[in-house]
Structure formats: structure tokens, C-alpha cells
């Protein structure tokens, strides 16, 4: 095994950021409003990914990420520094995404469908239009497969696979037992395998 928890830079980074984040939170609570910008800059991309993978709604993504940060700012005093800021923010983002999804379902009474409009942006590394179309089709398949997952299973995939959270962190974010997270992740990956493979996605 080349990458272990002890020598993985990513894991080291995670441990190091905890103290930094606690200091940033302390500064914000002490009245240093600009310190919150550090939190925004550090987590905006991660949260955008979580929210977009969860809702599939590219148009609402930015608004939901902004709402997440506003909620976090208002409730920053209740943040428990014993937990990771990233976990806490992910929980708020997921709640915002869930609320958005339910509002949309109540309004439209239609199932959540992943909006893959951003995939239309041309990828400069794609050599031909045919390959570009194939890539877009695969992206559509993956997006549609994610959208077909039940929300609890989609959340563990979004956090674990795309968010890079460990299963224990996913359990913290979702406030679930670790065993439940493992079961959901296993079930979700099995479903994704079935959903994507018949369409030629898997070699």
C-alpha cells in the first residue's frame, strides 16, 4: 500500500486544518467579520460540489451554497469545536439541499432530475465532437443514475465518493450509525453499478 493514513498528505492536511479553523472561528466570533471570508474561500468549491451532486440543479447551486454560508454564519456560536468545521458545514449544506429538493418536489410534484447543463461547456482537452458527445452522454448517464438513487443513498455517495469524507465522517454529517452508512454505501454502489453498466458505462 503506497498511501497510508500516516504518510498521506491529504490526511495530514485534514489534521492540520482543525487548529487553523478553530482559530478562524474564534476570530469571527470575536468580531473579525473578514475572517469568515477564509471559511468561504476554503469551502465554497466543496460545498458547491455537495449541493450540486445532491440536487442536480445547476441553477440553484450558487444560491444554496450562499444560503449555507449565511446559515453557518448565523449559527457559528453553536459550532462545537470538537467536531470538524467541514463536517458541520456539510451538514448545513445537505440540509439546505434537502429543503430545496422538497420545496421543488412540493411545487412541481416531479422527481429530481439531474441538470447536466454545465456539461455542455466545451472541454478543451476533448479532441473531437464525437468524443465530446460521448463524454457528455456518459455524464448524463452518471447524473441520471445518481438522481435515481433514493435520497439517503445518494447522500452517502455524494459525501463519501465525491466529497472525500470517510465513512465515519459521513456518519457524523448525517448523524447516522456507522453501520448504516456502510450499508447504504454498499447498496448505493450496487445500484449505480446496475444502472450504469447496462448502458455501456462500464467496460
Amino acid at each position: 500500500m503506497n498511501a497510508t493514513p500516516s504518510d498521506s498528505g491529504r490526511w495530514r492536511h485534514r489534521r492540520q486544518t482543525s487548529a487553523d479553523e478553530a482559530e478562524v472561528v474564534r476570530r469571527v466570533l470575536a468580531g473579525d467579520r473578514e475572517a469568515f471570508r477564509l471559511i468561504v474561500l476554503r469551502y465554497q468549491s466543496t460545498l458547491a460540489g455537495l449541493v450540486f451532486r445532491h440536487t442536480g440543479d445547476a441553477h440553484a447551486c450558487e444560491d444554496l451554497v450562499q444560503e449555507t454560508f449565511l446559515r453557518a454564519y448565523r449559527a457559528l456560536g453553536s459550532f462545537d469545536p470538537r467536531y470538524r468545521l467541514s463536517t458541520w458545514l456539510a451538514r448545513i449544506a445537505l440540509n439546505a439541499a434537502r429543503d430545496h429538493g422538497r420545496r421543488r418536489q412540493v411545487r412541481e410534484a416531479t422527481p429530481v432530475a439531474h441538470d447536466v447543463e454545465p456539461a455542455a461547456a466545451p472541454d478543451p482537452s476533448t479532441p473531437t465532437p464525437a468524443a465530446q458527445a460521448a463524454t457528455k452522454e456518459l455524464q448524463h448517464q452518471v447524473g441520471a443514475a445518481l438522481a435515481e438513487l433514493p435520497e439517503p443513498q445518494r447522500e452517502v455517495i455524494v459525501l463519501g465518493v465525491y466529497g472525500g469524507y470517510t465513512q465515519r465522517e459521513v456518519a457524523d454529517v448525517l448523524e447516522l450509525p456507522l453501520g448504516t452508512v456502510k450499508t447504504r454505501q454498499r447498496t448505493a454502489l450496487g445500484k449505480l453499478r446496475q444502472l450504469v453498466a447496462p448502458q455501456g458505462g462500464l467496460a
Partner: peptide, 20 residues
């Protein structure tokens, strides 16, 4: 399956430059 999910996931929309 995981490789496919990573490589062919719909791209996350870019936040505006002045998002912060």
C-alpha cells in the same frame, strides 16, 4: 464503478468569481 463515477460525473458549475 468508482472510477466511472469520478471520471464522468457531471461537472460542478463554477461559482461566480465574486462569490465570496
Amino acid at each position: 464503478t468508482l472510477s466511472l463515477l469520478h471520471e464522468h460525473a457531471p461537472p460542478v458549475p463554477e461559482l461566480s468569481l465574486d462569490f465570496a
